[in-house]
Simulated scan of single mutants.
Amino acid sequence: MKDRRTFLKQSGILTTSALLYSGTGLSAMAQSEQGTYTHAAQKGSRWLDGSRLVVSVSMQFEAGGQPENAESPFPQNMQKGYKDLPAETWYQYGYREGIPRMLDNWDKLGIKVTSHMVGGAVLKNPELAKEIVQRGHEAAAHGMNWATQYTMPYAEEKKFIGDGVDAIRKITGFNPIGYNANWLRRGENTLKILQELGFLYHIDDLSRDEPFIQKVNGKAFVTVPYTLRCNDIQLIEGKNFSVDQFINQVKMEFDQLYQEAATRRRQMSISFHDRIGGTPQMVQATKELFTYMTNQPGVNFKRKDEIARMALEDKTTITE
């Protein structure tokens, strides 16, 4: 499997159009690699493709789009009028080291992820944003910046979401169909706006361990549930878990869902943030976890756009 340096050297000979999502299915590259960890269909599977358990990974691309003096591991005691320079370097780690290291890890593991991209971060690091898509991962929208979205009037929120989409599309050529609000805090109008803008799904929901459909503006709209239980910003930064604790918690979550998946449709979500999940220790932890998971029959890793489309196609998907 190529490492990042080799990929970057060779990527110039690849045509972007051959790698991007076509709008009607996965790209040729994604299709060719989709079955890397496909096992025989499980008896009693509730997924159309025969998976027993679907695992979906989020890779948040936020660093570079954060406001000045944003939340960080440093004490929040900066005097007014001064810039928190050490905290800025914590965010810089996300695009200088974190995402590149995670991209190599995903390649070694043979999986594709969904990258929730802040528009401002994409514009600040366009080559990295393009690389994520060129390596077969989904680009999903994550707002234009870290503004408080749920307080915005309808027109302002629609422009805010649209500006983020435009940044991703302009830089990567990928048309986002999935959305994640900052800290999941969408507003009363968010789903209506997303439906109007052509999105198929959002992830700002913790209520189930499987995708479900609801009617928005009279049309089917998918929720692909997110997670705080298997989320590095919640566990590593928020609760100061060690990597061993993180591994144990995620593994126990997997084991329970895998057991339930013998008779029910089950989806497991795991989330990594550029400046946290891309640290050397966390990448090692991820390698250990995902190797364990892929050794279990019927486990498949899928991008969230794949899950949303499969949910829409499946007439047995829960509809609210």
Rank of each mutant, 00 (worst) to 15 (best):
M1W: 12
R5E: 14
F7R: 04
K9T: 02
K9E: 03
G12S: 05
I13H: 01
S17V: 15
A18D: 15
A18I: 10
A18E: 13
L19G: 04
T24L: 05
Y37S: 15
T38H: 11
A40K: 06
Q42Y: 08
G44T: 13
W47L: 09
G65Y: 00
E68R: 09
P75Y: 05
K83P: 00
R101A: 09
G110V: 02
H116V: 09
V118C: 10
G119K: 12
L123Q: 11
N125P: 10
N125M: 07
E127M: 14
Q134P: 00
Q134D: 10
G143H: 10
M144E: 13
M144D: 14
N145W: 07
N145T: 13
A147G: 10
E157T: 01
G164L: 08
V165K: 15
D166A: 15
K170H: 15
N175M: 05
A181T: 03
R185H: 04
R185N: 03
R185S: 00
G187Q: 05
T190N: 03
L191A: 12
L191F: 03
E196L: 01
I203Y: 01
P211M: 13
N217L: 15
G218N: 12
V222S: 12
V224R: 11
Y226F: 11
Y226E: 06
N240Q: 05
Q256K: 14
Q259H: 14
E260Y: 13
A261K: 12
R265S: 08
F272T: 03
G278A: 02
Q281Y: 06
F301K: 06
E313I: 00
T316M: 04
